[in-house]
Design a binder for these strands. Structure first.
Lengths: 205, 205
DNA sequence: CGAATACGATACACTGTGTTTCATAACTTT
DNA sequence: AAAGTTATGAAACACAGTGTATCGTATTCG
């Protein structure tokens, strides 16, 4: 079980011990049951029963099943972003990629539960859009790029998530170092080529 | 409204006219309502009400909402595959990409409804895996590729779908020809590089 | 025309969500 | 350690949506 579940309880340690206990149990139950049956197949009654918590108690803490998922997701991505922050300044894609895959490896169960949710895509997209704004300064974005910047950001986010998802269910077999390299070659370099360099054919010269 | 809806009715023209009418109406209702509210927000009662069809009649034709979606999806992908078949032999990625984006443009509403479904990914993945088997013969797959072939197929499928999805909601603005080129540069060429050529660093000379 | 059958309407059982109430147990504060 | 606060479990409830069964009627096919 990932350490993040407990870190979250610590973060809110000013709260009543009963509240921390209920929330922790519900979070653990979500992870366990979703790994077994998939998100949609898990009912709130399943969760409260597995968490050994009253049914109504669920709604005292979370508006619905999605809110419970999001509470886990927000913590996980916060941790990932602070892990990545120093490396993003270097603009070394391979190194950044390796850090991501190491984080995934250390929190594999949590990623398996969270990565397919729409909110995961949304949050990462928002972060990537911010990064793109910075990159635009450096690369001086030629007007005749093959695709507009938001297409590039979309591709970067979606295909990176897809690569992580594949890796999670392929036994995490190429190690994070090599996955970081693959991330650079397969995704990062082509994105830069398509959105920041010039069109291939139409060169009048 | 896409012509495919009617083509489907024709295909099954041996059936009772009442059956064809009910199915056609339900399919139209699905497309219209999903475009308005999104798939999950549409209930079967919504569908039958909009289709002007009895509630129980829905279940005489489709097991559930997903089965109705799949019936549309299977037809759409069948049409796409037969459109692509000749161009796949040429192995001209840019041309194939252009054909795909033209098909999307001609059936934009249908793609908007269907592309986010899990079954869409599954069906395209299956098709792509078959294509990959052929490609493996030509490229003689070196053993020290950066990623295994199924990672490449996964990336190809997921990122292509993501690119189409972006394009659908960005007003389909770069034309299909340019999108075909982008598909080749951004996706197809890197996939070949990563799965079929050698590792970059570890070359003992 | 006449037989076959798909249809709409209705009632029903069932599952899951979300709310409310209340007595009790657990926790925090002093 | 006692007193006050508050989160809890249990239970009952209204509600929405799914999927099934029945039956008389209308449409379609031959």
């Amino acid at each position: 079980m990932s350490a993040i579940l407990y870190a979250m309880a610590d973060t809110a340690s000013k709260l009543d011990a009963r509240v921390r206990r209920s929330r922790l149990r519900l979070r653990q139950a979500l992870v366990e049951l979703v790994l077994q049956r998939g998100y949609d197949a898990v009912t709130i009654r399943d969760l409260t029963s597995r968490a050994d918590v009253g049914y109504a108690t669920f709604f005292r803490h979370f508006q619905d099943k999605d809110a419970l998922l999001r509470s886990l997701l927000d913590e996980l991505l916060d941790e990932l972003m602070s892990l990545l922050a120093p490396s993003l300044a270097d603009a070394d894609a391979s190194r950044t990629g390796t850090l991501v895959f190491e984080h995934v490896q250390q929190n594999a169960d949590l990623y398996r539960v969270l990565i397919s949710s729409q909110r995961f895509v949304d949050l990462v997209s928002r972060a990537a859009s911010l990064g793109e704004t910075e990159m635009r300064r450096d690369h001086a974005l030629s007007g005749d790029a093959l695709l507009p910047p938001d297409a590039a950001v979309n591709h970067l986010v979606k295909s990176t998530i897809a690569l992580i998802e594949w890796w999670l269910y392929a036994g995490m077999s190429p190690d994070p170092r090599r996955m970081g390299e693959a991330f650079e070659v397969l995704i990062m370099a082509p994105v830069k080529a398509v959105a920041f360099r010039r069109l291939s054919g139409a060169r009048p010269s």
